[in-house]
Nucleic acid binder design. Structure first.
Lengths: 233, 233
DNA sequence: CGGGGCCTTGACGTGATTCAATAAAGGTGG
DNA sequence: CCACCTTTATTGAATCACGTCAAGGCCCCG
C-alpha cells in the first residue's frame, strides 16, 4: 500500500485517548490535536522515519509492528525496542534537537496514526498541568533504557533470553504460555543476538525441560526454575 | 570523613545556579530550595545511594568523582556514567516511582550537595514555565542512553575505546591532549570492558602510533586517523 | 510440484574474558 | 629518606562464548 493519509474514526480516537499520555487531556484539546493527525499505512520493511531525520511528528501504532532500530558501522543493526499495537512512540523526541535518535521500520505491514508535534507542543504550553504526565513518561523510558543497558553489558546470551522470557510472563505463577511479539530474528536483534544464537539458547532450554517451543508460541512449565537456571548460567 | 551535613556558601551557590537546569530559576525560588540543601562528604568507595533505594534527593557534585553503577548477577558491575565536578545527577528520578535506578558510589573522596526532591517538585508545580527545561534534560539523557546502547551492542572493544576517546576530544582539530576522567579500571567499566582488555586496546593504539599514553594523560596526534582506524577495526 | 521465507543445526574462527604473574606508582610509618 | 604494603596497570597464555559460514528442514503459497 502507499502511505495514503486518511482521517481518524471514533474507534481509533478512543484507543489513543486511553493511553496514559492523553488520558488527562480535555475533550476539546484532544479533539483539536487529532484533527491534525492522519493515518498511514506501511508495508513490511517500509521505513517510517530515519535516524537523524528532522522530527515533525510522533506516532500511535494501530496495527502491525514497528521496530525502533539504531544502525551501526557496517550495516549491523540493533533493535532498541519492538513497538506493539496501542503503543505511542517517538513522543519523547519532541523536547530536544528535534531529530529522531533511531530509525523506525515496519516489522509487519502496519497502520500508524501520525500526530504532528507543533500542535501537541502548543497545547502543552497552554496547559502546563499536562507536563508532569510527559515527565513521567520520559522517566519511564529512561528506566527502561537503563535496564536494557544492564542486560546488554552484564548478562550472557542465556541470561538475556531468560530475563526476556520472564518479562513476557504474566506475574509469577505456575506454568505459563506466552507468545513472542515478533518473528524470532527480530526478537534476537532486540536481545542483541544473532538468530542462530537465539535459536540455540531456545534449544538448550528445551532440552533442559524448561521450555516447550511451538513456532512462536512458548510454554514455560516453571518460571522459577528458569530464573534459577539463568542465575547460574 | 563522616558525612557531616553543612550549609551552602555563596560560591557553591553560584556554581549550582549556573547549571542549565537552574539558570532560569528566580533568585527567590532558588534560594528557598538551597536552604533545604546540605553538603555531604564521601570517602572513596562510599555509597551515596543504592539501586532500588527510595529516592528523596538529587545531587550536585562539587569535588571528586561519582560513578553511577548498575549491578548484575554475580557481583559484576557496569558503570552507566561517570559524573564529573559541576554536574547534577539523579534529578531525573523525581518523576517516576521514586526509586534510584542505579547505585552511586564515590570513585574518589568527594563532596556533593544534596537537594531534596520535595521542595524542588513543589517549586516546579508552582512555576510550570520551568518544566520545559526539565523535559529537555530528560530528553538529553534519553539520547545519551540510546547512544550508549548502540555502542555496547554493536561495536567492538576497539571501536568503543576509539569513540570514547574521540568524544573526549575538544571539537575536531589537530593533535589534542586529553586526560581520562577517572582511573583506567573505572573507564573500562564505563565502556563495558575489563581493565585488561582496555589496557590492551590502548597498547594497540600506542603501537600503531595513534596515541601516546602517560599515566592518565593521553595525546592523540591525529584524531581523524583514529576515527578511520576505528571504522576499519 | 517448486520456490522462498523462516528457523534450526553443525563446524569453525575469533575476539574478549579469565587467570596468573609482574611491574610500577602511591601511601604510610619508622 | 627508605622499607613496606597496597593499589593500579600491564602482559602473556589458556579458555570460552558468541558470531560467521554453510547446509538442510519445514511450512506456506502459488
Amino acid at each position: 500500500m502507499m502511505s495514503a493519509p486518511s482521517a481518524i474514526d471514533s474507534n481509533v480516537r478512543t484507543r489513543i485517548q486511553r493511553t496514559p499520555l492523553f488520558s488527562a487531556w480535555s475533550e476539546g484539546a484532544f479533539g483539536a490535536l487529532l484533527e491534525q493527525a492522519r493515518m498511514r499505512q506501511l508495508d513490511l520493511g517500509e521505513i517510517l522515519f530515519h535516524e537523524g531525520e528532522e522530527a515533525r511528528a510522533f506516532y500511535f501504532l494501530l496495527a502491525g509492528e514497528i521496530d525502533l532500530i539504531t544502525l551501526g558501522a557496517g550495516g549491523r543493526e540493533k533493535i532498541v525496542e519492538i513497538i506493539q499495537v496501542d503503543d505511542l512512540f517517538a513522543e519523547a523526541v519532541a523536547f530536544l534537537g528535534g531529530r529522531y535518535p533511531v530509525q523506525a521500520a515496519a516489522g509487519l505491514a502496519s497502520t500508524v496514526v501520525e500526530i504532528p508535534f507543533a500542535p501537541f507542543m502548543a497545547t502543552l504550553q497552554g496547559h502546563q498541568e499536562l507536563m508532569p504526565q510527559m515527565l513521567a513518561r520520559l522517566s519511564m523510558r529512561l528506566h527502561y533504557l537503563i535496564k536494557e543497558l544492564r542486560h546488554l553489558s552484564m548478562e550472557s546470551a542465556n541470561q538475556r533470553v531468560a530475563s526476556y522470557l520472564l518479562d513476557l510472563c504474566p506475574a509469577g505463577g505456575e506454568c505459563v504460555e506466552i507468545s513472542l511479539p515478533a518473528k524470532k530474528a527480530a526478537v534476537a536483534a532486540r536481545l542483541g543476538l544473532t538468530p542462530e544464537t537465539f535459536s540455540r539458547v531456545l534449544g538448550r532450554l528445551r532440552k533442559a525441560g524448561l521450555l516447550r517451543v511451538d513456532k512462536r508460541c512458548l510454554q514455560i512449565p516453571d518460571p522459577q526454575a528458569l530464573r534459577r537456571w539463568a542465575d547460574s548460567s
